[in-house]
């Protein structure tokens, strides 16, 4: 198996460990990732709030790079915000040729061109659909059977495009987590919004959303996420959320490939665990 790989800006900075662990996990599964050469920002949530065409041209540039290289048929995207932006290009230009030609007029400035036909896929889509949970459990060296894990999906890998899971009651992470020996924390917050986009402009609103998710995760040993915005948001604001809720809400927040990597017996360094902000002693003891 072979995919283009679009890491996106967060995975070069605040979500380094997501990049490290995704690459490590894929290499353990013998799946090849071809990083797009000279990729650029997808526009995050800033471009959609500024201009329609810009918000499509920025991600389209990266799809055009992939088309030019012609080495794989699908683009793997670990960040949910990047994923949605790239997916919008696939979906919208697929049925609107006028829009496609406008975008290509913009891309001409970069000597690039989008034709269509490449499929954009979220990391969780690939992990849950292309990789068999049985294949994962075969590689488990360190069973996590003392642990209970709360799967947190967030929003944009599930909605608005329904590609691989139920948009309200997602379960695609469960077989993968269970393959490590861990149990699933039963909760209803897995597909709720964490409010990450509020943190820079409306922090009080964001903290309230974070607190309600962390509260519901109580009893689990860790929350597992598949989005850098969600991970940083749930990881970095635990002190503020605890103060708001007037109770201790500290909990370990991992990326899914980090958890799977741990079960494969990869070292903490190999999955970038040193980069997570909150890894509790209790969690470490159970490893």
């Amino acid at each position: 198996m072979k995919y283009y790989y679009y890491p996106g800006c967060s995975l070069e900075g605040t979500a380094k460990e997501y990049d490290i662990s995704t690459r490590a996990f894929m290499s353990a599964m013998e799946i090849e990732l071809v990083e797009l050469e000279d990729w650029t920002c997808c526009g995050a949530s800033a471009a959609p709030a500024t201009g329609n065409l810009l918000s499509l041209a920025l991600p389209a540039r990266n799809i055009a790079l992939a088309e030019k290289t012609n080495a794989a048929k699908e683009i793997l995207v670990p960040c949910s915000a990047c994923y949605l932006n790239l997916k919008q290009v696939e979906k919208k230009t697929g049925k609107d040729t006028e829009l496609l030609s406008k975008i290509n007029t913009i891309l001409e400035e970069e000597h690039l061109h989008v034709t269509g036909g490449l499929r954009v896929r979220h990391l969780l889509d690939v992990l849950s659909k292309d990789i068999d949970a049985a294949a994962v459990s075969q590689r488990v060296q360190r069973s996590l059977n003392d642990m209970t894990i709360a799967p947190y999906y967030g929003c944009q890998c599930l909605r608005p495009y329904i590609e691989f899971d139920d948009p309200e009651t997602p379960r695609s992470m469960e077989p993968l987590i269970e393959a490590t020996g861990a149990k699933i924390h039963a909760w209803s917050k897995g597909s709720k919004c964490c409010g990450a986009s509020h943190m820079n402009t409306q922090m009080d609103v964001g903290i309230e959303l974070v607190a309600s998710i962390l509260k519901a995760a109580k009893g689990a040993d860790a929350i597992v996420t598949v989005c850098p915005m969600c991970q940083v948001n749930l990881d970095a604001y635990q002190k503020k959320a605890s103060r708001f809720a007037k109770e201790d809400l500290d909990i370990t927040v991992l990326y899914l490939p980090q958890l799977l990597g741990l079960a494969f017996g990869l070292t903490e360094k190999e999955i970038g665990l040193n980069y997570n902000l909150a890894v509790s002693d209790g969690f470490r003891k159970k490893l």
Binding site: C155, R159, P160, E168
Partner: peptide, 9 residues
């Protein structure tokens, strides 16, 4: 609006 897409759904 934090673009959670629940209302759209």
């Amino acid at each position: 609006c934090s673009a959670c897409y629940y209302c759209t759904l």
